[in-house]
């Protein structure tokens, strides 16, 4: 995280980016990762990660929604009637997701087509709702905003790792479908007729398993395994 540069600028206004605030962003990246530790927001993690490019777009969309829904809820937290708070939170989230959908249609129609229903499913991405309940309802707007960004980043991090693994082994490419598209490993002639990229391991033929949704489960399972072996305090006792 490059929070250090921002921190220098805001050193006078200490509470704006103090140690506590920085933790709000860095914690969800590892120790309190929404996917691997809090078990939140897994559906979309699986569905869109067969390629990196949609994963990145999805990650940005989720960061936007978590950050701004946290901010809005925190601003309204003293006015939201307890009895209907879930519905109020959902309305806020659904509005932001609709904004994301309209924006995608406006700026990048092909990727909107590709993500289709999964954009809508950000609403029911438990991370968003979970953070509203656990954090934004009880904290000040600025800190809630940071918490939203942090959790969005933690989620996006896993999404992109899974996407990279699946795309390289499943298709031998990276960023397929975007302007950055490149062929990394495997037989070049199979996909791009006149590619100039030199590729490694010409003998490699694509592993179809990695493209299937099930592969995402395996990859996340293994990420959890690695994370918990390094960080034994997270190990499940049950």
């Amino acid at each position: 995280m490059s929070t250090t540069t921002q921190e220098v600028k805001q050193v006078e206004k200490e509470p704006l980016f103090g140690k506590k605030e920085r933790r709000l962003i860095t914690d969800p990246l590892n120790d309190n990762n929404p996917i691997t530790v809090q078990i939140l927001g897994i559906c979309s993690a699986l569905a869109v990660t067969s390629l990196v490019y949609p994963s990145v777009v999805m990650a940005i969309a989720v960061i936007f929604v978590t950050a701004f829904s946290n901010l809005t809820t925190s601003l309204l937290r003293n006015y939201i009637p307890k009895s209907v708070r879930m519905i109020v939170q959902l309305i806020i989230i659904a509005t932001l997701v609709t904004v994301v959908e309209l924006m995608l249609k406006y700026f990048n129609y092909p990727i909107y087509k590709q993500l289709s229903v999964y954009i809508g499913l950000i609403i029911t991405n438990c991370i968003v709702m979970g953070r509203l309940e656990a954090f934004a309802m009880a904290n000040k707007p600025w800190r809630s905003f940071l918490d939203g960004i942090g959790n969005g980043l933690g989620y996006g991090l896993i999404l992109i790792i899974v996407g990279v693994v699946r795309e390289i082994f499943g298709k031998g490419t990276l960023f397929a479908g975007s302007p950055l598209e490149m062929k990394l490993i495997g037989n070049t002639s199979e996909f791009f007729i006149n590619t100039t990229d030199s590729t490694l391991f010409g003998w490699y033929s694509n592993n179809n398993l990695m493209v299937l949704p099930a592969a995402a489960m395996f990859v996340i399972g293994i990420i959890i395994w690695i994370q918990r072996s390094r960080n034994t305090k997270l190990v499940d006792i049950s």
Binding site: V99, K105, Y106
Partner: peptide, 21 residues
Amino acid sequence: VLLTFIREATKDQAALNEDIF
């Protein structure tokens, strides 16, 4: 109101994008 406003503002471009797609 907010959503209707955003939609009206983006509608034409979105339709054009779909067309080009």
